[in-house]
Amino acid sequence: MSNFTLRRLSETFAIHSLRRESSIPDVVFNAPIFFLAKTYDEISIVIPEHIEIDSEEVELGWQAFEVVGPLNFTLTGIMSNISTVLANEKISIFTISTFDTDYVLVKSDKFAAAKAALIKHNYQVI
């Protein structure tokens, strides 16, 4: 499997957890980028950190790598390979997949180490 190009997004992200019955704040939908998931138990929202919302819990200080796509649904092992590289360096991740691509978020203080590890494993990071 060939290694992919990863692009660093300029935003620093916050990961919010809300109760399942919560309303999604309008400011989320006006954000330049956001990720939203609702399960039977909770709502998760990932938005740029400078956008504040009320939430049950929040994790601040996440940087994102975007796997440059679009990626074909027949491709396999993309996230597995990236997560293995980072797990071997003891770097925790938060992943998000969209129709066209994948995103890997790491804490800001681990970003340089994550980038170095990925480059060492033949990923191009732009």
Rank of each mutant, 00 (worst) to 15 (best):
D100G: 10
M79A: 09
S80V: 13
S80K: 08
T98S: 14
V106K: 03
K90G: 07
N88K: 11
I93P: 01
I93T: 13
Y103C: 01
L86I: 11
F94E: 04
I96E: 03
S92N: 11
S80M: 13
T98D: 08
S80H: 10
I82D: 04
F94T: 14
A87P: 12
Y103Q: 01
D109E: 09
I78D: 11
T95C: 14
F94K: 09
T95A: 15
I78C: 10
S80P: 10
D102Q: 01
L86H: 05
V106N: 07
N81T: 15
L105I: 05
Y103T: 01
S80R: 09
K107M: 07
Y103R: 01
N88W: 09
I93W: 02
S97W: 14
I96M: 07
F94W: 08
I91H: 05
E89F: 12
V104I: 15
T98N: 10
V85G: 08
K107C: 00
A87C: 13
T98Y: 09
K107F: 10
L86N: 05
D100S: 11
D102G: 02
K110M: 01
D100P: 00
Y103A: 01
K107H: 15
I93H: 11
T84F: 07
T95G: 12
L86C: 07
I91C: 00
N81M: 03
S92K: 09
K90S: 15
S97Q: 13
S108G: 04
F99P: 06
M79V: 04
I78F: 06
A87T: 14
I96Y: 07
V85A: 03
T98F: 08
I78G: 00
A87N: 15
V85H: 08
V106G: 03
I93F: 02
S92H: 08
D102E: 01
D100Y: 02
I82N: 05
S92P: 10
T101W: 02
K90R: 14
S80W: 08
F94H: 11
K107R: 15
D102I: 00
F94P: 04
T95E: 11
L105M: 14
V104P: 08
D109C: 00
T101A: 02
F94Q: 05
L105H: 10
N88V: 12
M79L: 15
I82H: 09
E89V: 02
L86Q: 05
K110H: 13
Y103V: 01
T98L: 03
I96W: 01
M79G: 01
Y103P: 02
S80G: 15
K90P: 06
D100Q: 05
I93A: 12
T98P: 07
D100N: 12
I91K: 04
T98Q: 04
S108W: 14
F99T: 12
L86K: 02
D109S: 07
S80C: 10
M79S: 09
T95D: 07
V85R: 05
F99M: 11
I91Q: 05
D109Y: 13
S92E: 02
N81F: 07
S92G: 12
K90E: 14
K107Q: 14
F94A: 00
N88F: 14
K107L: 13
V106L: 12
L105C: 08
K90I: 11
K110L: 00
T95L: 11
V85T: 11
T95N: 12
Y103M: 00
K110I: 00
T84G: 11
K107Y: 10
F99K: 07
I82V: 10
E89A: 13
D102W: 00
S92Q: 09
